[in-house]
Nucleic acid binder design. Structure first.
Length: 503
RNA sequence: GCCGCCUUAGCUCAGUUGGUUAGAGCGCUGGAUUGUGGAUUCAGAGGUCCCCCGUUCAAGCCGGGGAGGCGGUACCA
């Protein structure tokens, strides 16, 4: 006898950095999405949806000197050999949409959009290769009013999610000021290595909160070696230049106007820098008008965001409270949303500059953050009322009961499995059913049904635990007349809702 | 990408100096319980010891290579 050859079985597992979501968690995340979408809609934005993937060149992510999309994006070739890429954000598809339909769109074009985006990067806790973003953008809106609106709207979203004032803050900066500081430090845009140096300086500033002033100064100068032995090349600035940049990062104050005053001296006589400061001053006035004070939005010179992308105001929303994670450590989640002005994006398609500004929340990340911090109200996934099948020949009777409940607006199902009563109870338990409906021989003889309150039953069992009696008496159940089924179920549901309300 | 640590049951992990049949807890399935989930108790199922090559009479354990995971760092539209 030969060994039976095992047939090939694929290993059942989700791809790295991707995940399944189900039930209560999914619904909670959806509620969060709805709350943000509701705010966007009230601000007057129009809903748009675009495809999950685009022609790769439209996303603008090609490897230099190569006919192949950049790393970081998932790509594949169409049958005509054109490269297609999964979208990695919602802004690039928007630029494509606006350029394609430019003549027929109202200008400014204000739309909001949500959906999954994909990034081929190393996944981490709360960081996936597929995640949901929800964006709002104003395309063709050149004034600071559009930027101020984005900032106030992001703050309103945090309010709408029930995050307390003081637990979040929108940090705002302006790219023009960064340019001004570099100019002030003697870095000239004409220099051949200007772009490289600027990039390094921006990255260094972005790391301020993590590395501290000393680490950033190393990055601005010679470079820095981290604990793992990895070396990061510095910008090679002189001590005087470094001091100018560091002075800029210290310009932040609790009050927006005070920050503006500090920034004004940090940019010296740089025209572009002064322009940036004036823009912030205007944003400050507009935010005041929108009832968005320094408790919700501050000016923070260390905010950098998307490097080769933003051209004016940039902002990010940060959760600033700390909470204990499952390991008992105090953690804080940083940025959960961001945005800014990108006047150059549509130019890629149209050749003319179209001023635009927008904002974006990472819904998956925001949800994961709030969940990890125990700030989500995951209303313990309430399952359906389960009608037990006590007598397999009477399935039609149970279906009638189930339909009566559904017609009364109650989520209900008849047990569809093949198990006995014990298995059916376990099933109901696992589904999170609030109660089960039992109609066996005994009940039928008396034209009754038994309702068992699973929530209450669990409560009671906790008190009786060591007593074998717990099974002898039927806990938390009542028998009612068959004709009063709907009424009886409604009554029991209300009672258990009230009970949950107490807890 | 770079550095470090890790990989044994569905999950969390034990596993002696290399030595017969690889274990525990939890979970799962079933019984104790004519018709009752969560307590108790008994039983059962469940394993390519990550993969490949090598050393050895003998490898979960030793050596080499690879893959995957975790942490840090870099990048991040």
């Amino acid at each position: 006898m030969s060994k039976a050859k095992k047939s090939f079985r694929p290993k059942a597992r989700a791809p790295r950095g991707l995940r399944d979501q189900r039930g209560g968690q999914l619904q909670a995340e959806r509620r969060m999405l709805d709350a943000i979408a509701g705010v966007y809609a009230r601000y007057g934005f129009e809903l748009l949806d675009t495809p999950a993937f685009e022609y790769a060149d439209a996303l603008g992510k090609f490897l230099p000197d190569q006919d192949r999309p950049n790393e970081g994006v998932f790509s594949f070739q169409d049958d005509d050999e054109q490269w297609l890429s999964m979208r990695y954000d919602l802004t690039a598809p928007l630029a494509r949409f606006v350029a394609e339909n430019y003549d027929s769109l109202p200008k400014p074009f204000r739309r909001y959009q949500w959906g999954p985006v994909w990034r081929n990067e190393k996944p981490g806790p709360g960081r996936f290769r597929q995640f949901i973003q929800i964006d709002a953008d104003s395309v063709g809106a050149p004034t600071m009013a559009a930027d101020a609106e984005m900032i106030a709207m992001m703050a309103d979203c945090m309010d709408a999610l029930g995050i307390a004032r003081g637990d979040y803050v929108v940090r705002v900066n302006n790219r023009k000021i960064l340019d001004g500081v570099l100019e002030c430090a003697g870095l000239l845009p004409e220099a051949s290595n200007y772009e490289t140096q600027k990039l390094i300086v921006l990255r260094a500033i972005d790391k301020l909160d993590r590395l501290g002033a000393d680490g950033v100064m190393l990055l601005l100068g010679e470079g820095r070696k981290d604990e793992s032995g990895d070396y990061t090349k510095g910008a090679g600035l002189s001590p005087e230049q470094i001091e100018k940049v560091m002075a800029f990062t210290r310009a932040g104050a609790a009050d927006r106007r005070e920050t503006c005053a500090n920034l004004r001296s940090a940019v010296g006589t740089s025209a572009i820098g002064l322009e940036g400061v004036e823009e912030l001053q205007e944003i400050d006035r507009l935010l005041d008008a929108l009832a968005c004070g320094s408790d919700r939005a501050v000016f923070d010179p260390s905010v950098v965001r998307g490097l080769g992308y933003y051209t004016g105001p940039v902002f990010e929303v940060e959760l600033v409270f700390e909470a204990e994670n499952e390991k008992g450590e105090m953690t804080r989640f940083g940025s959960v949303g961001s945005g800014g002005r990108y006047d150059g994006l549509v130019k890629m398609f149209k050749g003319v500059e179209v001023p635009a500004t927008g904002c974006s929340f990472g819904v998956s990340r925001l949800f994961a953050a709030l969940e990890a911090l125990g700030k989500t109200q995951t209303d313990a996934a309430t399952g359906p009322v389960v009608v037990l099948v006590m007598d397999k020949d009477r399935a039609a009777d149970y279906q009638v009961m189930t339909k009566e409940l559904r017609d009364a607006g109650i989520c209900a199902e008849m047990y569809m499995g093949g198990g006995g009563m014990r298995a059916q109870m376990k099933y109901a338990d696992k589904r999170g059913a609030p109660l089960v409906v039992i109609e066996g021989e005994d009940e039928r003889a008396k034209a009754e049904v038994t309702l068992k309150d699973l929530v209450l039953g669990e409560r009671l069992s906790a008190d009786i635990s060591d007593n074998e009696e717990w099974r002898s008496g039927a806990q938390a159940q009542v028998s009612i007349s068959r004709t009063g089924l709907v009424e009886g179920v409604q009554k029991m549901l209300m009672a258990s809702d009230a009970f949950k309300g107490e807890g």
